[in-house]
Write a protein that binds this DNA or RNA. Structure first.
Lengths: 225, 225, 225, 225
DNA sequence: TATGAATGAGGTTTCATTCAT
DNA sequence: CATGAATGAAACCTCATTCAT
């Protein structure tokens, strides 16, 4: 979650926000705070007043830059999605053999989601709202999901090397990876409470990461006859 | 989704709700409406006024029976959880061989979640609220998750028959099944929008159900050396 | 202006507003206050807060009964229009000769407008808003403007008795009467200021009333050859 | 309505507004836009932001030249009043016989108001505000209403020629002319809606113009005994 | 038990205006 | 002169909840 906090205390001009004009800094600051609030309480549960209070600026600025609460939420979503897409673009599976590359990819996704619970929660919130804001955002729609390309190339390689089964849709495969990774963050509260288990400690995360990798790899590997 | 609607139009006493005294019917009616509203709009997004309006009774009754909005939400959650637990108890995998029994169990879960989007969405909502209501409900905490027992027995059988790998925690296994099933409903809006795919049609569901079963089974099966 | 104030201090139940439940009284009270405020300051200039403050109830009740500021304004307009229509219905020109009946009608209109400046100002305000609220109100649209019937009958009588010219449209005639009556109230502030004349004193009103009557009658009378 | 638009696109220096220094052009531009906005939405309804946006300059200039919203409104009123006064000064009734001269004057007023709805609406707005801005403007107060002089001279001529009745106050006469002319624009929205008649087409205007002239003339003409 | 009326606290948004560059 | 950034006060409206009958 380092990413979220970074900008908060990095105004472009020394002296801090509020003393000088720094549109980008102000917008960043608002977005950061809003991200946390919307992620924590959902769209309706979050309060513009509270977001403003936790900001270095005033409520008025939120409306100045983002028009209204919904505009702010859309901007927050856009930031969140473009954040993950940016990271995905940097993905480098090197020249690992296909199986290990796939495992690595799955584990990377698992790690990203666990490192960015705000992103996961925003996606949950957006789903509760039937993705209406996502629909409204051209920016998000235009983002290229490069992880699919990476996945596709790994899968093809595995197939051509004869280690992966044929006939698997990489989008389905991506869905499996996402589902397994997402759940650990999204459903942590209820699941851990009901099954009285830990899902947050380093050990638990490590164990689960391995399981997720294994699950994905086993699904694709050609089984010996 | 028959379950949700059943009670709505089944007052125990002829003459309709509102004219007669039927505490249980009134409560059922309120719970059904509230379930739909909370599932549709989340806890903060749902409106007590609107719930009351869609009810055969009045707002007064909501406060009379459920104390406040939170009390109503807790009751709704309790109903939802006890609903799934009740169904799980009826699970009968007959004397299928372990692999097929496990596949069947996974597919059953997948089907249940897809047939009960309100349940899935309520769980999402509760997770956004960090499961505070679930914590408050003794009733939910006391519900026995019999599916774990079923899963445990199948798994043991598979191990003793030498077809399943050893050392797998059935709660982890259950998490995998849940994650794969849950995602299809919970993240449908955003995922289908971003990947421009369908996740609701009968065909899509059938394909995905099979994938989920296959994924789970492959994870457990002992691979031939 | 007696009409406006009457209801203000006439709750249906003794004890005063706020102490007891009296929907009609509350609505009346709000409407009376709102009429004065909208008439005094226009739609945008009037403040819901101020209206509420001058009321025996609270702001919340305004929204409860009238939905929003516009709903309140529409209701105010409806009351104003139905007020004048009600009075017009009681018009009785007896068996005056046509010329005198017409003069009487014109002077009555002049008097009504002068006695109800709030009505006149509301109509001005509505015209500034291009009559959008009037358009929205079925109630106003359905009000029968009986003064037209009265005017029509007087005019026909005058024509058949040979004292009125033929070929005059009674709606045009009504427009003339309205214009002359309306102006005295509507444009009083600017006109009296620019021409440094009084338009409010009893004497001024009496003089102008006579002029209006005379103007209208002369327009219709057949001039001797 | 050519007047309104003229200045908008006629910067004195080539290169367009905003790039060059042209105080008068900038002020004109602001006044034109503000005239339209205030006329369209009233004083409270008009928005400084919107006025600025429709201007070739910025909000800062509005405050620089006109101090505040009210100062701008006063300036707009001043422009509007001085516009009509300027036109009135050019009035030349030639050597028409008194009756025709009077009719001509009335019809001219009718035409002017219909050609300048913004002026009419500003006057309405100012009346809603009880002419407080007009009071504040020395410029408007000092404008000589030359139409009164013209009217006075025509009337005297008619009286001395024995065709007009004696004892009529020309300010009252002017009021009648104004009232009949003003109404057609000011109350067009409500009147045409209630009486389902047209008040804007060329034909309607021509008919009404004639009626207004006739009404005024008949009021003054000496009736044969 | 049932219903519409009532409410206070607080929510979102807008406005005219000023400041920094 | 010119521009976008910034602001506090106040505007409109909504919410969960309680009261009177």
């Amino acid at each position: 979650m380092r990413t979220d906090d970074e900008a908060t205390d990095a105004p472009t001009v020394p002296g801090g926000l509020g003393r000088t004009q720094d549109p980008e800094g102000v917008k960043r600051n608002i977005l950061d705070v809003a991200t946390r609030e919307f992620a924590a309480k959902g769209f309706s549960g979050a309060r513009v007043d509270e977001i403003a209070a936790k900001t270095a600026t005033s409520k008025r600025m939120i409306y100045y830059y983002f028009r209204d609460k919904e505009g702010l939420f859309v901007a927050v979503l856009e930031e969140a999605y473009s954040g993950i897409r940016k990271i995905e673009r940097r993905l480098d599976l090197g020249d690992l053999p296909p199986g290990e590359a796939l495992r690595s990819l799955a584990e990377f996704t698992f790690d990203y989601q666990n490192a960015h619970p705000d992103f996961v929660r925003l996606v949950m919130v957006e789903n509760i709202h039937n993705a209406v804001h996502l629909e409204r955002s051209e920016r998000i729609q235009s983002l290229n999901v490069s992880v699919i390309d990476v996945l596709d190339s790994v899968y093809r390689r595995g197939v051509s090397e004869g280690v992966f089964r044929e006939g698997i849709d990489v989008i389905d495969l991506h869905m499996t990876i996402s589902a397994l990774s997402f759940f650990n963050v999204a459903n942590r509260a209820t699941f851990s409470k009901i099954f009285k288990c830990d899902m947050e400690s380093e050990e638990s995360l490590a164990r689960r990461r391995a399981q997720v990798g294994e699950t994905v790899v086993r699904y694709v590997l050609k089984t010996k006859a």
